[in-house]
Design a protein around this nucleic acid. Structure first.
Lengths: 130, 130
DNA sequence: TTACTATAGGGATAATTTGTCAATATAAAT
DNA sequence: ATTTATATTGACAAATTATCCCTATAGTAA
């Protein structure tokens, strides 16, 4: 989630990283992708790059998030043993999931407002002099 | 951090909450407040409302965050046993802290861009019909 | 037939982070 | 005397994260 800093030698994440944790933000992104069309995990994993997720995003975290969304009733899934390749789980958005998507939109607009408050103050301090 | 949903009976946080964890975002906010002027924890606790933090933000989390920032060398502190009231720890921004503030600004702009990507898609799906 | 790669999914684990609650202390106000 | 505002710290359980590793199927190249 943090590309402007390289990771240090020990492989740990940069210190300002995680302002918005990967898996948390992944949830509304998965919901909105599934609102557009049902899909399986591997497919979603790749679509997530459209929202700024790294191309080498850990697949484990995507599958884990999907399973949690299903536990919460926000998505449903069934096995799809169709043409070619290993069996895949096809996920769809539930009604409850769509409601949650709306709640997320409100939430994210709020967070953006907070970030704007920060950025405006930042610019008013640094842009002029210094 | 989540005001658009009330908490449920058990006192747990609403399910879409925490997209941006309170203490994580608190860090750059504290740094920018200290860039403007040195202050002590209780003072900062109140200034944080300007960034959208709840008026009843748990003081413990603010002090804890300040201590961590000091461990990391981003702020410095010394006891101020001045006029009236209990002794207070006066915090100041270090040079390293100011650098980190710039890194945070980059990071937050990036996150904002991601949120915009989400919100634009959200609107393109829902605003027209539905 | 063997090996490799792409596709697809799952799990285990340790470390961090969070929220919450409680405790301590000083001074001013009632 | 006691309540309120100021000010800081500690402890802890629960949730969350990142990370690494494992399994399995099918098609393709060697």
């Amino acid at each position: 989630m943090c590309d402007h800093h390289s990771r240090d030698k020990k492989g740990s994440v940069c210190r300002c990283g995680g302002g918005l944790p990967v898996e948390k933000f992944m949830q509304p992104c998965l919901l909105i992708l599934l609102k557009q069309r049902s899909a399986h995990g591997y497919d979603l994993l790749q679509q997530l790059t459209e929202f700024g997720f790294s191309e080498r995003l850990d697949p484990g975290s995507v599958y884990r998030t999907l399973r949690r969304l299903e536990e919460e009733g926000l998505v449903t899934s069934h096995w799809d043993v169709g043409e070619g390749g290993p069996a895949r789980r096809l996920y769809s958005l539930s009604d409850e999931g769509e409601e949650m998507l709306h709640a997320w939109a409100v939430h994210i607009r709020q967070q953006r407002k907070r970030m704007d408050a920060f950025l405006e103050r930042y610019q008013s301090i640094f842009s002029k002099q210094d």
